[in-house]
Simulated scan of single mutants.
Amino acid sequence: MTFEEQIRTNSKRFQLLMKQLSDTEWSETALADAKSRLSACVREIHASQMKIKSCQIAADKQHQRFVGIKKIGVRYIWYKVRRRYGQLVDEQAKAWLREFRKCQDEQQRLTALKEEIVVAQKNLHHCQQNYEQYTQTRQELNELLDQLFSLTEPPHPYEDALKQDIKKKQEYLLILQGNSRIFRHVFHILTKAQRAILIAQQAIAGALNMNTLNKFSRYIFGRTIINSYLFKAKDASTQLQELLNEVKGIRSELSLLSHVYIQNDDVILNTLFNNLCKNKLDESSNDVASLHTMLFTALSQIKEQMERCEVERNQTIKDVNRLTKIHFVLRCAIVISTIESSSADLWS
């Protein structure tokens, strides 16, 4: 069956799907607007409830002042003697009424917002239903178009070239997505490694701060503190060793990471603290500081590569979506043109 014959056979189904797609296409943008409006309503209701709460507290405090003034006591007698009692009562009553009215106004606004959120929820539900129908119709139409354009000899070379271009972009996108995941994983490992090296630095610095090491070594308390620092540094170095080995294992799978440790493959803290003694503390501290600098450089490099990869990935996603829309519109235009040509041939 030729391309034109397939289109004539499926023309009614194609036109029905196109009508359904046209009727529900508005939901694609309306759904995002409906979600945004509902979120705004929720935020406004929360803000209104907090405002009502603060207004109620202010009104209660003002009412307590008003009641306190009316109680007979020293203040009552004082204001009575000065003939300011009536004025003060009026002022406190007006202040309380102002706070009370603020609370009432905000409660009315909250009632209106609750009605608005009900409307927003109904609108969102309506948009979701239409969007589900739109996506289903779009999928069915794509399947029909794939069937119509699945001939060995492509009926339109430009359409086939565009399809191949989309396929290449999608394959490249998969590579970028994989690289992005690896970069994020390596970045996470190096961040943990940096924390481990900081712990080792702090532990060695703690031992170095005990400048009276020979004097303290005579006492069990002093030796206990020193050993505690050194064991902490050794634990951190062991964790660092494991993390660097994990990064090396990933590096062999991704050539972009091969240069990160290329000059420092032997700078590992596997024996740094095994036979650590007092005269080696300064040397160990320098080694750890050097490794920390290397880790900071590697972390910066990985972060830069990760960000570049994610920018390229996001741009490729946009390119794939743009080309996919162009491809869809082109296919539909080809089918519509073929249907119109067939109808013209029948009438001629």
Rank of each mutant, 00 (worst) to 15 (best):
Q6R: 14
T9I: 15
S11R: 14
L17N: 06
S27H: 00
E28K: 10
L31K: 09
K35I: 02
R37N: 09
R37L: 14
R37W: 14
V42L: 10
A47C: 01
K51A: 11
K53H: 14
S54Q: 14
C55R: 12
A59S: 15
Q62P: 09
Q62H: 15
H63V: 03
H63M: 02
R65M: 05
V67D: 13
R75V: 15
I77E: 05
R82D: 00
R83P: 00
R84V: 09
G86Q: 14
L88N: 05
L88D: 03
V89T: 12
Q92M: 00
A95V: 03
L97S: 13
E99D: 12
F100M: 10
Q104T: 02
Q107R: 15
Q108P: 00
L110C: 07
L113Y: 04
L113S: 07
H125V: 06
C127K: 10
R138T: 04
E140V: 00
D146Y: 02
Q147T: 13
T152Q: 13
P155S: 10
D160P: 11
K163G: 12
I166K: 02
I166A: 07
K167G: 08
I182G: 11
F187E: 03
T191V: 03
A205H: 10
L208T: 00
N211P: 00
K215G: 03
S217Q: 08
S217F: 07
Y219T: 05
S228V: 07
K232R: 14
A233R: 05
A236L: 03
Q239M: 12
L240P: 03
L244M: 14
L244H: 03
E246Q: 14
K248M: 15
L256C: 07
L256I: 14
I262T: 12
Q263I: 10
D265V: 15
I268D: 04
D282F: 02
D287W: 01
S300P: 05
Q301P: 04
I302Q: 06
E310G: 01
V311T: 09
R313E: 07
R313H: 13
K318N: 09
R322T: 04
L323D: 13
T324D: 08
K325E: 10
I326P: 02
H327V: 02
F328E: 01
R331Y: 03
R331G: 05
V335H: 05
I336W: 08
S337V: 07
S337L: 11
T338Y: 06
I339R: 00
E340F: 13
